[in-house]
Design a protein around this nucleic acid. Structure first.
Lengths: 226, 226
DNA sequence: CGACATGTTGAGATGGATCAACACTTGTGG
DNA sequence: CCACAAGTGTTGATCCATCTCAACATGTCG
């Protein structure tokens, strides 16, 4: 989405710097929020929460273009962690600059709100999935969801996408056990619906997956970028 | 939270009017978004999504002070409905006024974002609940969650709150079946943890409920109001 | 009075969890 | 170069939390 030159300049000035994080590292610790804000430039990450006995729920996956950290800043004590799946590069914004941004560039503030609302929409979807879909539907949903998102940011090539997450990630995102995730994934593969190989996901029958997941996507007109 | 007089005036001018909705009526239809924005003045409501075969997931409950409709405005096709639990009065904002608000009163825009982020934080919690807690933990969580929220808006009197939702609502919010919700609720009651009677909820052992749910609340400093 | 919403309870079925192996790959230190 | 540990995927056996089905009770309302 186009941004005015002036706004772009402000964004440039606004950001503190670019930061690199290695695969598997924690970007934001669950217990100690730091109020920083990020935009994900490249790589995959995820937001998660854990119960005190270690059960983990992945809230959503973070892909290039995602804006991160609003909930941390505002949430009522309810914290989440962020972890890098692959090596990741982040654009870091200062802890207290958000108000500046709203004041000086309301249109950017508007965009931030847009992004926040879009992310909440995604979490809404995942809640429906975890609450009301069965294992097969959940897996189909996740595959379609991620595939479509990658498509939108232009990261689908030749009908396949990079797929750096493992079955434990999938299980934690869907609220399933690792073993059952494996069996469900395998069943879908044997039905010829998808293939995961060498860290690539290829969907072989999106029609069927959409039907199973009861997932029908409407791409948004255009997405703001920060 | 205090608001400047000038801002208050803008809010007054901004709103289209106040609207009343009867218990059980749909405030916002799942399939046809209208882009309107609301603030809930009084009563209870909830946001929900349904699968095409009718399975319903309640995304969160709406209580006085909640700001509604952002996701509808921005979501990528992913829609949700809103229904009134009790009779409800709403402050209605015009469909396209949000940008005006951001431009003329950045601080109000900032507040909107705050509210959006806080709501996402709540959905995050519910996703953790639906994905990783068992039935007992879920029910304990819901009771604590709602009780604390009502407390914060000053609607807890004498250790009890209005509790207008029925077991079907609870089941749909937690991703459980109606029957199992009933049995779980009953077990907690027989343990002396709570009482629901005549539309009132009384928590008899919040300590135990918190422990079961693994839920420890940190109230936010102050909440903006629109 | 009957229709309807809501809550309650039991019996049986089942989807998914848990437990326990094992295979394969990769990286590491000796 | 090999031995070994660690991470990941796979599979079978068994268990159990939750779902489904089916009744029945109660209160409200026309």
């Amino acid at each position: 989405m186009p941004v005015k030159a002036e706004e772009l300049k402000f964004i440039e000035a606004f950001r503190t710097g670019i930061s690199q994080v290695n695969a598997g590292d924690t970007i934001l610790h669950e217990q100690k929020p730091n109020g920083k804000l990020f935009t994900l430039y490249s790589g995959w990450g995820f937001r998660y929460k854990t119960l005190s006995d270690g059960r983990r729920q992945i809230l959503n996956f973070l892909l290039p273009g995602d804006f991160i950290g609003l909930q941390q800043k505002f949430a009522d004590g309810a914290m989440h962690g962020i972890e890098a799946v692959t090596d990741v590069s982040l654009c870091v914004f200062p802890r207290d600059g958000l108000w500046e941004l709203f004041r000086n560039h309301p249109s950017l503030g508007y965009d931030v709100t847009w992004l926040a609302a879009r992310e909440e929409g995604m979490v809404d979807d995942h809640l429906l999935t975890a609450g009301r879909r069965n294992a097969t539907e959940r897996v189909a949903m996740l595959l379609m969801h991620l595939f479509r998102r990658l498509e939108r940011v232009g990261m689908a090539e030749g009908g396949q996408i990079e797929f750096p997450i493992n079955q434990q990630h999938i299980a934690d995102a869907l609220g399933l056990s690792l073993v059952h995730t494996n069996k469900t994934l395998r069943r879908l593969r044997q039905l010829g619906l998808h293939e995961i190989e060498n860290g690539k996901l290829r969907l072989l029958n999106t029609r069927a997956l959409e039907r199973i997941a009861d997932f029908y996507d409407t791409p948004p007109p255009q997405v703001p970028l920060l």
